[in-house]
Amino acid sequence: MTLQLLRDLSRSTLPLTVNDRDAIDQLRLLRAAGLVAVFLSSPHSPTPFARVLVVTPEGRRALSSSDQMAIV
């Protein structure tokens, strides 16, 4: 699911604001892995959001690698 979110983001016009709590949790994982640059609201915010700024070069390499593995 997280890899699919990364793939969707790579095809989106960025920056992009995300309000879905599950997607925000996935973005935290992607950010921790260095695959996206994202601004996250406070975890205690009554209206949490994430502002995705960019899919990093590492994120694009991860997508490229996963696409190549799918071909094999």
Rank of each mutant, 00 (worst) to 15 (best):
L35G: 03
L35T: 03
L35R: 00
L35M: 00
V36Y: 03
V36C: 07
V36S: 03
A37P: 06
A37H: 08
A37S: 09
A37K: 10
A37M: 04
A37N: 01
A37C: 01
V38T: 02
F39I: 11
F39G: 09
F39Y: 04
F39W: 02
F39S: 10
F39H: 11
F39Q: 08
L40D: 07
L40V: 10
L40G: 08
L40E: 09
L40S: 02
L40R: 10
L40W: 03
S41P: 11
S41D: 14
S41A: 14
S42Q: 04
S42F: 00
S42A: 06
S42E: 03
S42G: 09
P43A: 13
P43T: 12
P43V: 10
H44E: 13
H44L: 12
H44A: 12
H44D: 13
H44T: 13
S45P: 10
S45C: 12
S45Y: 01
S45N: 14
P46Y: 02
P46C: 04
P46D: 01
P46I: 10
T47F: 03
T47D: 08
P48Q: 15
P48M: 11
P48N: 11
P48H: 11
F49R: 15
F49W: 15
F49A: 15
F49N: 15
A50V: 07
A50K: 02
A50S: 07
A50G: 11
A50F: 10
A50T: 02
R51H: 12
R51Q: 15
R51V: 14
V52H: 08
V52D: 08
V52T: 02
V52C: 06
L53G: 08
L53Q: 06
L53C: 01
L53S: 05
L53K: 07
L53F: 04
V54Q: 08
V54K: 03
V54P: 07
V54I: 00
V54C: 06
V55A: 03
V55G: 07
V55H: 02
V55K: 09
V55M: 05
T56F: 05
T56H: 06
T56N: 00
T56C: 06
T56Q: 01
P57I: 09
P57Q: 10
P57F: 05
P57D: 13
E58V: 00
E58H: 10
E58I: 04
E58G: 12
E58F: 06
G59E: 06
G59A: 07
G59V: 06
R60M: 04
R60Y: 03
R60S: 01
R60P: 00
R60H: 05
R60E: 04
R61E: 15
R61F: 13
R61H: 14
R61M: 14
R61K: 13
A62K: 08
A62H: 07
A62I: 04
A62S: 09
L63G: 02
L63D: 05
S64C: 11
S64M: 11
S64Q: 14
S64L: 13
S65G: 12
S65D: 15
S65R: 15
S66K: 11
S66D: 06
S66I: 07
S66L: 09
S66G: 07
